[in-house]
Amino acid sequence: MRALYEFFSGGGMVRAAMRDEWNCLFANDISEKKAAAYTANWGGEHLKIKNITDIKPIDLPGRADLAWASFPCQDLSLAGNGVGLNGERSGTFWAFWKLMMALKKEGRNPSLIALENVYGTLTSHDGKDFESIVRAIVAGGYRLGAMVIDAARFLPQSRPRLFIVAVNANVAVPEQLLASGPSKTWHPSGLVHAFESMPKRLQSRWIWWDLPLPVDKPKELKDLIEDNPKDVQWHTKEETKRLCSMMTPINRLKVDRAIEQASQTGEQVVGTIYRRMRQGLQRAEARFDGVSGCLRTPSGGSSLQTIIVINQKIVRSRLLSRREAARLMGLDDDYKLPERYSEAYHLTGDGVAVPVVNHLAQHIFNPIIDTIKAIELADEAA
């Protein structure tokens, strides 16, 4: 079976995406609370709860085919503090990379390395942070490519994220995985600009991954909503009115149109609301396009996401439930969530969308590793 190391593992959403086809040899996170959720779902015998700077090669058993690292985004986020890879949190990339290079000295570095982070990674410090990551990967003996994948292609959540996939330079990548140039689907202008801004030496080690579109149409937000969640209460009429009073005329018009739609069709209309600071005022911004806003952790200063549900002309609102947040990340309903609301919301908001990881596995990771193993078997037979 293919083998995986999962760094910055959180609640094990990469594990959730790959559990049937990959064996996780090692997982790591610094958070005791997230580790508790990981253990509840996947067991803890292979989990190390410590700072990645304290992880040593001896802690990593065997040799993994893939090392996945969703390193912290706070210092790279467009809404963050701007310190980038020099920051205490996002700078943990360097500790991860040091570990990968230590494994290389032992002859057991992974054939594949995947990194996931926010879109702001491309523009942090005018692109210098992204170039630094690419430079380190190339110097480490890998070729690489990147994609910006929005979870909205798989789930009813707007969640664009940068995915960097690096492959050992000695590995022959199957031709069907390679594109001749960028695609509009996975390689937006910001990524293309970042590539074109790099030195030619780094460009020569670049791969334009040819990733197919998902076959299945994603569910809509209304399909994931609980009728009677136990962990959140419906707002009072007064609270809902106050929330609507915080809207600009444009956003209030969205609500009015949703009420009209519900009245005409007799069907329930579901949307989401985020409260944001706009020009010194707190505003409520609504959307009714069948997709939720990006789940964010409140530690970054964002408000919790609110659900607005309209039946006929009755408008109700409440916070997103724990299970709804998990569904928006693609977690099955049998996934065990923390009992405390804040811990569950933090766990999911910090995670990676499960079907996105699975899509990468099916169309990039699995074919490459299977090709490597087939060649190894043929060499052994010879």
Rank of each mutant, 00 (worst) to 15 (best):
T306R: 13
S317Y: 03
I307W: 05
T306M: 10
L295K: 04
D289P: 03
I307Y: 07
G293R: 12
T306C: 00
S303I: 01
S303H: 09
G301Q: 07
I310H: 08
R296T: 12
T297W: 02
G301H: 08
I310M: 08
G300R: 06
R322C: 08
L319A: 12
S321F: 00
I314W: 00
S302L: 08
S299A: 11
S321Q: 01
V315Y: 08
L320Q: 09
F288H: 04
Q305R: 06
S317T: 15
L319F: 13
R322V: 03
R318N: 13
K313C: 06
I307P: 04
S303D: 14
S303C: 11
I314L: 11
T297M: 12
R287Y: 00
G290N: 02
K313F: 01
R323N: 00
I310S: 11
L319D: 04
S303N: 11
P298K: 05
F288S: 03
P298R: 13
I307R: 08
L319P: 02
G301L: 03
E324I: 03
I314M: 09
L295W: 09
V309F: 00
R322H: 04
A325C: 13
L320E: 10
G300F: 11
R318I: 11
T306N: 05
S302F: 15
R296I: 04
A326E: 03
T297G: 13
V309R: 14
R318H: 12
G301V: 08
S299T: 09
T306A: 00
S317E: 06
